[in-house]
Write a protein that binds this DNA or RNA. Structure first.
Length: 359
DNA sequence: CATGGTGTAAACAGGG
DNA sequence: CCCCTGTTTACACCAT
């Protein structure tokens, strides 16, 4: 059976350009329940990126390391009779970060993601989503997302998950579930936010290529938001440009949508970049810029107020906790003082710890 | 040079 | 006891 990567005819011998957090994110989002044990995350990665089939096993360590340290991922309980280990899922608060990271892939042979990148340039990182997240009421007040099918409807044969999500959002999706044969029972999917749909779309795009995506309109249910419509015109794969900025992952110590280290372009898509000016949503640039500035200001205030820290999962220690409450037994013991210190790394690390303490 | 992000290696605990 | 999972520390490299 050909793997997804083989079907897509990608250069499977190359190391994927995605960070481990992106890989984990994709694996989890590509699952039915959006919760995976590490074993299945391994399997997904090796299946989609055969590079890892022959790579030394250290990458698995990196995956586990990422799951533990990266606040984007959280451990969830599972039924006790499923063997050892936990299920891992994407923290809703950090989904925009991960989606953003996906957009930042410096290069990739996986051209199927282009359309997804363009989609998310325009409708990602909305204030309502991040605010509800910060206030810790994600479960009780999920942002309502309205997606309206346009000229090309999603094919439920290709997108059982996504079409199910659209249906769950109470939307009429013309063409959905009108197939001649019986579809497999759709998995129970609960739509929580725009990011849910975006992530699902990314996975579908990865699997099936740009043909899966019809014009999708996004209408945040806040009453006063103008409907955002991604026009289908001028959106051929040729004129979609992928960002060249790597590393916008905000993993480990980064707070939700902590964009203090990001330029506005990085944080909100690349519409103003010369590379990004031809993806067919130029008419949205002014409004997008406005939204960007509003969101930036709101985020800055929220970050200053320290909101959202209370919303974080209690299962994991924060990086700050890790520093202030060091485990006495775990981790590599401090090495003996080297005869010849490797440059100034030790002192550099010490300074970094001190900075953390002083915050 | 300082700082932060990322990847890798390793030690260790605990459970199956 | 072994293996897997999860956590933690340390460090190198790179970008900004």
């Amino acid at each position: 059976m050909a793997t997804i990567a083989e079907k897509l005819q990608v250069h499977t011998s190359l190391k994927p350009p995605y960070s481990f957090s992106c890989l984990i994110f994709m694996a989890i989002e590509d699952s039915v329940t959006q919760k995976l044990p590490v074993k299945d995350i391994y399997a997904w990665i090796t299946d989609h990126f055969p590079y890892f089939q022959t790579a030394p096993n250290g990458w698995k360590n990196s995956v586990r390391h990422n799951l533990s340290l990266n606040k984007c991922f959280k451990k969830v309980d599972k039924s006790p009779n499923v063997g050892k280990g936990s299920l891992w899922m994407v923290d809703h608060c950090y989904r925009p970060n991960l989606l953003q990271a996906l957009k930042k892939v410096p290069y990739h042979p996986y051209m199927q993601l282009e359309r997804f990148h363009a989609l998310n340039n325009n409708n990602n990182n909305t204030i309502p989503n991040s605010q509800s997240c910060r206030l810790g009421n994600v479960e009780s007040e999920p942002p309502v997302v309205s997606l309206v099918g346009r000229s090309n409807m999603l094919n439920p044969d290709l997108f059982p998950f996504l079409t199910q999500r659209l249906a769950a959002a109470g939307l009429q999706v013309p063409g959905a579930y009108t197939r001649h044969h019986n579809p497999p029972p759709p998995p129970p999917v609960h739509i929580e936010s725009q990011e849910d749909v975006n992530a699902a779309t990314a996975m579908l795009a990865l699997k099936h290529g740009p043909r899966i995506l019809g014009g999708i309109s996004v209408l945040p249910d806040r009453g006063d938001h103008a409907q955002k419509t991604i026009p289908r015109t001028h959106e051929t794969p040729q004129n979609l440009v992928i960002t060249t900025s790597p590393s916008a992952d905000h993993t480990y110590s980064a707070g939700p949508r902590s964009r203090s280290t990001l330029s506005p372009d990085e944080a909100y898509g690349e519409g103003s970049s010369s590379n990004e000016s031809s993806h067919g949503i130029d008419s949205e640039e002014d409004e997008a810029e406005e939204q960007r500035k509003i969101a930036e200001g709101a985020d800055a205030l929220l970050n200053l107020a320290g909101i959202c820290t209370a919303a974080q999962q209690p299962l994991k220690r924060t990086p700050l906790q890790s520093l202030t409450e060091p485990s006495a037994k775990r981790g590599r013991p401090p090495p003996p003082p080297p005869a010849t210190p490797s440059r100034h790394r030790a002192s550099q690390q010490q300074r970094r710890r001190e900075r953390f303490h002083n915050r």
